[in-house]
Design a protein around this nucleic acid. Structure first.
Lengths: 97, 97
DNA sequence: GTTAAATATGAAAGGACGTTCATATATGTC
DNA sequence: GACATATATGAACGTCCTTTCATATTTAAC
C-alpha cells in the first residue's frame, strides 16, 4: 500500500472522513446503527435540538451514509451500508486501545 | 453495537476522524504507510509546500498518528500503529466500492 | 379548512481550519 | 564563526462549518 491514491479517490476519502468527523453526526450514526429510527427517536436518543439533528441528517444523506423511508409524517433513517459500521468500529478500536 | 459510546470516546473519535479528513494529511499518511520517510522526501512525494507539510505533520504528531526519529538535520516520520492503515483501508474500500 | 405533530429549510453568528508568507531554529561543513 | 540545508513556527487571511433561531412544509385528525 505504498502508493498514494489519485486525487479523485483522496477527495472522496476526505469527504467521507469529514462527514464522519462530527460529534452530533457520530451520535446519529450510532443511534441508527442497529435499527432504522424516526427523526424524533433520533432526537431523543442523541439529545440534540430538532433543527440540529435535521441539518446533520441532511449532511449524512447528501454523503450517502444514510437512506430514508417515509411513513406518514415520520421519516425513518438507517445506515446506507455496512462500511459505515466498519469505519465506526475501526475508529472506536483505535481510541479505546 | 446499538449503544452510543459515551462523550469522552466520541470526542476522541471525532478528533481522530478530523485529523484524518484532510487532503494533505491523507497524502502524508499514505506516503509513510510502508516505510518511514524524511520530511523532504514527504514533501517531494506529496507535492505540497515545505511549510504546509511541516504544519500538517505537526497536527498528525499531536494526534499521535505518527512518530518521529531525528538523524542529523533530518527527521523521519512513520505511522504510529497499524490502526491507521486499517482506517485508510476501510475508507478506501468504501469510496472505491 | 384548522389545528397539531413531524420534519425540513434559510439566514446569521461565531469559531475553527487550511494555506501562504516570512522568519526562526537546529545541525553539519568549511 | 559563516554558510547551507533541513525542519519548525508564528501571524494573517480567507473559507468552511457547526449551531441556533425563526419559519416553512408536509401529513394526519377533527
Amino acid at each position: 500500500m505504498s502508493i498514494i491514491p489519485d486525487n479523485k479517490v483522496l477527495d472522496k476519502m476526505e469527504s467521507l472522513l469529514n462527514v464522519a468527523s462530527d460529534f452530533t453526526r457520530l451520535k446519529i450514526l450510532y443511534s441508527i446503527s442497529d435499527t432504522e429510527k424516526s427523526v424524533s427517536d433520533i432526537i431523543k436518543e442523541v439529545g440534540a435540538s430538532q433543527s440540529l439533528v435535521s441539518h446533520q441528517i441532511k449532511v449524512l444523506k447528501k454523503a450517502n451514509l444514510v437512506t430514508s423511508r417515509k411513513e406518514g409524517t415520520r421519516v425513518f433513517y438507517k445506515l446506507a451500508d455496512e462500511h459505515i459500521v466498519q469505519l465506526l468500529n475501526v475508529v472506536y478500536e483505535h481510541v479505546t486501545e
